[in-house]
Amino acid sequence: MVGESGCGKSTLAHSILRLIRPDSGSARYRGRDILSLNRTELLEMRRKMQIVFQDPYSSLAPHMTAEKLIGDPLRVHGCRSEASIREMVVKLLCEVGLDADCLHRFPHEFSGGQRQRIGIARALILNPEFVVCDEPVSALDVSVRAQVLNLMRSLQISKKLTYLFISHDLSVVKHISDRIAVMYMGKIVELADKWRLYANPAHPYTKGLLGAIPSLQGRRRGGISLSGDAPDAYQRPSGCCFRNRCPAAELVCKIEEPELKDVGHGHMAACHLQGPRGDESVPSAAMV
C-alpha cells in the first residue's frame, strides 16, 4: 500500500485491526466482519492479525524491558508459565537477530533498528497469519532500513506470513511487495501486481509517483510529473478526487466519481479514462 503522507494509510491499518472505529464501512478478514466481533472473538482475531508500528521510539513502552514487551502478548492470551514465556521470547529474539542479553534492557538502550526488531518480535510471538506493517522502516536510518526489510522478508517466508505493507517509499515497496495498492486521499486508485504496476501504470497518479523516483537514466518510461498539492481532505473536489492535479482531466472527471474497475489481467484502476470507456492511455508527457 503506497500513498503520500496524510492520505489515510495508517487510518486504514488501524481500522483493519479495530484499533480505531471507522465512521462507516466494514472491515472483513476471511469473510468475517471485524467490526462486529465480540470480546472473545476479537481476542481470537488479534492472535491472527498483528501490527508492526511506524515509530519504534514511541511504540515501545519506555518502562518495560524487552522481555516484558515481547512476552506481554503471550500473557494477555492466557500463557501463565513464566519459564515458557521466557523461552519463547528468547527464541523470537534470536529470530529477529537480537540475542538473549537484551532481555533485561529497556527500549532506550536500543538503537532504532533494534527497537523495530523488538516491535517485530512482539508482533510475531503470537504466530499471526497476517501482519500489518505500518511504515515499519520509514523512521529508520537508510543503513539499517535494508537490514530490517530483509529480516521481514525472510520472516515472511519462514513463518508463511501475509503482510499488508504500508509505505510512502516506492523503492521499499518494490523490494517487498507482490501486489501494490496506490492510495490517494483515502481511496485506493490503483491495485495491481507489482510488475504490472511498475511496467504499465494505469492511473495518472501512479504515473506521477513513478515519475518522481529519482533515477540515473533520466525520466522513466510512462512517468509524468505532477504539480500542486493534494487538496484539503475536508474540501474534496467533486467527482474524481485527483482531477485538479490530473494532466488529462475531462468533464466527466468533474461530475462523476470513478469506481475501481478492472482494466485487464486483474489490474484495477479508478480512472474514467481507463478501461472500456476511454481505452486510450493518458497522454503521459502532457505536463512535462
Partner: peptide, 14 residues
Amino acid sequence: EKEYVLSASAIGSS
C-alpha cells in the same frame, strides 16, 4: 496518544 498504548490494544490487552 502514544503508539505503545495502541500497541497494547493491538495485542488484545483489556
